[in-house]
C-alpha cells in the first residue's frame, strides 16, 4: 500500500466531491409512480401506516403529529429530471420545525440522519422512524 503522510495537525477534509450537504439537503426521490397513481389513491396518505407500499415514495406533502412531535414533509412542485430519466422529487422534512435530512437508496427506500441503517418505503415512514429513535432529543437547529 502506498500512503502519503499527511502534514502534521491537518485533520481530514473533504474535497473534490459534491458534499453531502449539497446532495442530501433535499433528498431526491424517484417518482416512479407519480404519473400512474390516480389522485384518489393519494388521499389520506398521512394517516397510513409506516409500512406503506412503494407508491408512497412518490407521494405528496404530509403533516402530522406523531408521538407528540410535529412532522412535516414538503415535495418540490416542479419535478426535476435525473440522468435515469425518471421524474424526481425533492423533499424537505422537518421534525418540530427542525430539518431532518433524508437520503434515498437505490431500491427507492429512505434513510434519515438519525437512523442510517433502517430503510423506510416513504419519507413519512422514515420521519416517523426518526422520531421513534429520537426519544427526548431534539434535532439541531441547522442540520449537519
Amino acid at each position: 500500500m502506498d500512503v502519503q503522510t499527511s502534514p502534521a495537525g491537518v485533520g481530514p477534509a473533504g474535497r473534490g466531491v459534491v458534499s453531502r450537504r449539497t446532495v442530501v439537503r433535499r433528498v431526491v426521490g424517484v417518482a416512479l409512480a407519480a404519473a400512474v397513481v390516480p389522485a384518489a389513491a393519494l388521499v389520506g396518505r398521512a394517516f397510513r401506516e409506516p409500512r406503506d407500499d412503494m407508491k408512497d415514495a412518490a407521494g405528496g406533502d404530509f403533516e402530522e403529529t406523531y408521538r407528540g412531535r410535529h412532522i412535516r414533509g414538503t415535495r418540490a412542485d416542479a419535478p426535476m429530471r435525473t440522468h435515469t430519466a425518471h421524474g424526481a422529487a425533492l423533499w424537505d422534512v422537518t421534525v418540530d420545525g427542525r430539518p431532518l435530512h433524508l437520503m434515498s437508496r437505490a431500491d427507492g427506500s429512505y434513510l434519515t440522519m438519525v437512523d442510517h441503517y433502517q430503510s423506510f418505503p416513504t419519507p413519512l415512514a422514515a420521519a416517523r422512524g426518526a422520531v421513534d429513535e429520537l426519544g427526548d432529543q431534539i434535532l439541531r437547529r441547522h442540520a449537519l
Binding site: 485533520g11 473533504g14 446532495v23 424526481a88 437505490a106
Partner: peptide
C-alpha cells in the same frame, strides 16, 4: 474533524450522488 468527514461522505446510493 473525523466525525464531520464521515457525515459528509455518507451519501445514499439513490440520491443521484
Amino acid at each position: 474533524d473525523f466525525v464531520r468527514m464521515h457525515v459528509e461522505f455518507y451519501v445514499g446510493d439513490g440520491s443521484g450522488g
